[in-house]
Design a protein around this nucleic acid. Sequence first.
DNA 1: CGGCATCCTCCCCGATACTG
DNA 2: CAGTATCGGGGAGGATGCCG
Lengths: 121, 121
Amino acid sequence: MLNPDPFQAQCPTRVILDRIADKWTVLLLTAVAERPTRFNALRRRVEGVSQKVLSQTLKSLERDGLVTRHAYPTVPVTVEYAITPLGASLERTLAPLAHWASEHIDQIAKAQAQFDGRKAA
Amino acid sequence: MLNPDPFQAQCPTRVILDRIADKWTVLLLTAVAERPTRFNALRRRVEGVSQKVLSQTLKSLERDGLVTRHAYPTVPVTVEYAITPLGASLERTLAPLAHWASEHIDQIAKAQAQFDGRKAA
DNA sequence: CGGCATCCTCCCCGATACTG
DNA sequence: CAGTATCGGGGAGGATGCCG
């Protein structure tokens, strides 16, 4: 069993955090959770993600069992990514963060302005 | 008002995610939320964080109004970091992630092993 | 359409040394 | 004790080109 202390390197919290705390993972998990989506549709949906990073991120999401990848033998090939039950449960625990963000973004901006103002003064 | 679509670059979700989705921010927020803590105590509590990155991360947490920094004029100086109400509310929305992590870490490990097994085969 | 390979750049982060 | 300054490596991630 892993060390449960959330501040030790090998505890579950740290391991999960190291996996999802990057620029795109949470965003893509959320996007795929909405509905099954094809590669390029995902690329258009999530503004700013490059093809390479999208591919990489989806692959590690697949590896972790959070999304599935299904290739249909059409011409040209169609690839659809979908959420798994495991991924959906993670997405549900992350969803409140989006709500928190919209409700508190103004407070953050205000705090930053105050902090920067004190520095300049 | 900011764009509420969570997949556009300037929406609150993206802004917040860009701020907290790094290696140490969530961890330090959680640690400080437990109790007010001094710099070196924090450093010992959170295994593996370097002095420089701890200092940087605390400063940006302070800038965002998520933690406070209070210096006591002792000799040598004592500096204590504490959570703010804003920081506490963020920490509460992040806390379920730690629970999710301990409950599902085994499933993730299993999915990874299966994925890697298929690749090798 | 959905990738992989390659190259390259930036900046995150660690190590070390020094300061009030 | 609580930082700042400096240096440097490595990896994340962007741009481009090619392929099934």
